[in-house]
């Protein structure tokens, strides 16, 4: 519950998520303000009239996604920093998420950061597309992050530490780093099966239980495919490590 955790619930978020068709059309504001408090700068700052008039200043802002063009002026005007802009038309597989960021240093355009969710947990690697820090922003800069589309409604903050940087361990059994995986992808190994065979990632004692997910994310990011389009590799016995002796001594041959 929001008033106990500080984290908006799934229902909260769904209630302010525009329809899929609208999201895919282009940038739109997501107003994550779920409490009746005396505040109205979002309404007064919107030049498009996309936020319904707050007749009672305590009313919650209601956005008309059809009128909103995702300009993002409201982001830096919201004292609660509760407004974000999501643009799912950015590319086939990626979305742009615009986030208010009142911290120093600011991320550099073009750099990689870690996208965090509403609890500050790492979600994915994100590329900084733009940092808007004009006088009008009045010390509430807006950072645009490029994230995989499936995380457009999840990423709401960022960490300058690139949790997903090249020397991050992906496969702990065989100690394979993200950098190595990325290098194999660059060299043309473009499926999980190929990467497994060439790098041995996923062939250790855990049988890929810890690393497959991460490698698939990386493949998706590099090839522009959706996670659902990445094929799993083959599974063969044994599913868990066993002693060779167990096999040798095994049951009688039929």
């Amino acid at each position: 519950m929001l008033e106990r955790t500080g984290v908006p619930t799934k229902e909260n978020i769904e209630s302010v998520t525009p329809l899929k068709e609208r999201l895919s059309k282009g940038p739109v504001a997501i107003i994550e303000c779920f409490q009746e408090i005396p505040c109205n700068p979002c309404y007064t700052s919107c030049k498009k009239g996309a936020i319904k008039e707050l007749i009672d200043i305590n009313d919650r802002p209601i956005l008309d996604p059809e009128k909103c063009n995702g300009c993002g002026v409201c982001i830096s005007n919201c004292p609660g920093l509760a407004i974000f802009v999501v643009d799912e038309s950015y590319s086939e597989t990626e979305a742009l998420v615009k986030i208010p960021y009142e911290f120093v240093p600011l991320p550099k355009e073009g750099s990689f950061v870690t996208g965090l969710d509403r609890e500050g947990k790492p979600v994915c690697r994100a590329k900084v597309e733009k940092v808007l820090n004009t006088k009008a922003q009045d010390r509430t800069p807006v950072v645009s992050l490029i994230v995989p589309k499936e995380f457009s409604m999840t990423v709401r903050f960022l960490s300058l530490n690139d949790h997903y940087s090249d020397n991050t361990i992906v496969c702990r059994c065989e100690e394979i780093t993200l950098g190595e995986i990325r290098e194999y992808i660059r060299r043309g190994y473009q499926s999980l099966e190929e990467i497994k065979r060439i790098s041995r990632a996923g062939m250790g004692p855990c049988q890929g239980r810890t690393c497959s997910q991460l490698i698939m994310q990386e493949l998706a990011a590099a090839t522009g495919k959706r996670l659902s389009e990445i094929k799993m590799s083959a599974f063969r016995p044994p599913a868990v490590p066993i002693k060779l002796g167990q096999l040798l001594g095994g049951d009688d041959h039929e």
Binding site: M1, E3, T5, G6, Q35, G80, R118, G120, F157
Partner: peptide
């Protein structure tokens, strides 16, 4: 208390930074 007293948006800002809010 079981609920924090301040505005939810302030608590949400902190949670995004990874700060635990513990009623």
């Amino acid at each position: 208390g079981p609920k924090f007293g301040g505005y939810a948006v302030h608590a949400s800002k902190l949670r995004r930074l990874g700060v635990p809010v513990m009623p």
